[in-house]
C-alpha cells in the first residue's frame, strides 16, 4: 500500500463516516435529553427513501433533502408521542419505528415507481455534486499535505462539510447555551429541571425534533450523495453503528467525530480489501466489518474507560402521581 492508496482510503472514510456522523449526533441530542433512540436506523431509511423519491420526481436534490428531513421528523414525532406523551417504552418504540421504515419504504417505492422497491437512478441536479475546496487545485502539487487536502478532504458533496461543521455546532449548543444546559439537565435529572420551572416535555420534544432533522440529513446524504438511488434496506445497519459510535464517544460531540471517522475507516478498509494480510495471519473481511460492534461491547463492558449514559435515559418523566 502506498501513499496514494492511503489518500483514497481516507477519502472514502470521510464519505462513509458522514451518514454515521449525522445519525450519531442525532442520537446524541436525543439521548442527552433522556430519550433513548434505537430508531435511528428507521429514520435514516425513511429519509433516504423520500429524499431519493422526491429528488427523482422533481429533479431537485434540495427538495429531496427537505422531504427526507420532513419524513424523518414525522417518525421522530411518533417516537416522541410514544415515549414522551404516552410514556411508553422508548426501546420498543424504536424497534417499531425501524420496522415501520423498513416496510413503508418498499411499499411506497413499489407503489410510486414499480421497480421492485427502489427508486430510479438519480443524476444531474437530483444528486449532490462534489465541491472543490478553495486552493485545492493550487495546493495539490505540495508534497504530502497537498494530495491529502486536494484528494481526501476536498471534492466531497456539501453535506459532508455540513456534517463536519455540525460537530462544533453541537458542542456549542450543548455546552455553551442555556438551551443546551437545560437539555443535558433534563437527561440527568428531569425533576430538578421541572422544579426550576422549565417545561420538561417541551425540551424533550425539541431534542427529539433535532434528532429527526439530523437523521434526515443522514438518510438524504446516503441516497443522494453516497449512492444515486434508494434501494431496499440501504441503511444497512448504519443507525446501529451510529448508536455504537455514540457509546464509543461517551455521548460527547468531538469524540463522536472520532468514533465515526474510525468506523468509517473500518468500512472503507473492508470495502477495499477482501481480507487483510498481516504476514503471520490473515484478518477476514467479516471481522473488520464486525469490529465496530465488538469495540462497542468492549467499551460497554468498561474494560477501556467506562461509558456512563445520561442518568434519566429511557425513563419517561411523570410530573406527579
Amino acid at each position: 500500500m502506498n501513499y496514494l492508496d492511503l489518500i483514497q482510503i481516507l477519502d472514502s472514510s470521510i464519505r462513509l463516516a458522514t451518514p454515521l456522523l449525522f445519525a450519531c449526533l442525532a442520537g446524541l441530542f436525543s439521548e442527552r435529553a433522556g430519550v433513548f433512540d434505537i430508531g435511528l436506523e428507521g429514520k435514516i431509511l425513511i429519509s433516504a427513501f423520500f429524499s431519493a423519491a422526491v429528488a427523482a420526481l422533481t429533479g431537485s436534490v434540495w427538495l429531496g433533502l427537505l422531504a427526507g428531513i420532513a419524513s424523518s421528523m414525522v417518525f421522530s414525532m411518533i417516537h416522541g408521542l410514544a415515549s414522551i406523551t404516552f410514556r411508553g417504552d422508548q426501546l420498543i418504540s424504536g424497534v417499531a419505528i425501524n420496522f415501520l421504515a423498513a416496510g413503508m419504504t418498499v411499499l411506497i417505492a413499489q407503489d410510486w415507481f414499480s421497480q421492485g422497491g427502489r427508486t430510479p437512478q438519480l443524476s444531474g441536479g437530483a444528486r449532490f455534486s462534489p465541491i472543490e475546496l478553495p486552493f485545492a487545485e493550487a495546493l495539490s502539487g505540495v508534497p504530502f499535505i497537498g494530495p491529502l487536502y486536494a484528494d481526501a478532504l476536498s471534492g466531497h458533496t456539501i453535506l459532508v462539510y455540513v456534517g463536519l461543521l455540525t460537530v462544533p455546532l453541537t458542542w456549542y449548543v450543548l455546552f455553551r447555551t442555556r438551551f443546551g444546559l437545560r437539555l443535558r439537565a433534563v437527561g440527568e435529572n428531569p425533576g430538578a429541571v421541572d422544579t426550576a420551572g422549565v417545561n420538561v416535555v417541551r425540551l424533550r420534544y425539541a431534542a427529539v425534533a433535532i434528532c429527526g432533522v439530523l437523521c434526515g440529513l443522514s438518510g438524504s446524504f446516503l441516497a443522494t450523495g453516497l449512492a444515486a438511488s434508494f434501494t431496499q434496506n440501504m441503511s444497512a445497519g448504519r443507525g446501529y453503528i451510529a448508536l455504537a459510535a455514540l457509546i464509543f464517544a461517551k455521548w460527547r460531540p468531538w469524540y463522536a467525530l472520532g468514533a465515526c471517522l474510525l468506523f468509517g475507516l473500518l468500512q472503507a478498509i473492508s470495502n477495499r480489501y477482501s481480507s487483510i494480510d498481516l504476514v503471520l495471519f490473515e484478518i477476514p473481511n467479516a471481522f473488520v466489518l464486525a469490529l465496530p460492534y465488538i469495540l462497542t461491547v468492549v467499551i460497554l463492558a468498561g474494560f477501556v474507560g467506562k461509558a456512563v449514559p445520561p442518568r434519566a435515559g429511557g425513563q419517561p418523566y411523570v410530573k406527579e402521581r
Binding site: I78, L81, A82, S83, F86, G88, D89, Q90, I92, S93, V95, A96, I97, N98, F99, L100, A102, G103
Partner: peptide, 10 residues
C-alpha cells in the same frame, strides 16, 4: 411494526 407500536410503545 404497527402491532409493536400499538401493543408495546403506545
Amino acid at each position: 411494526a404497527l402491532v409493536i407500536l400499538f401493543t408495546g410503545a403506545l
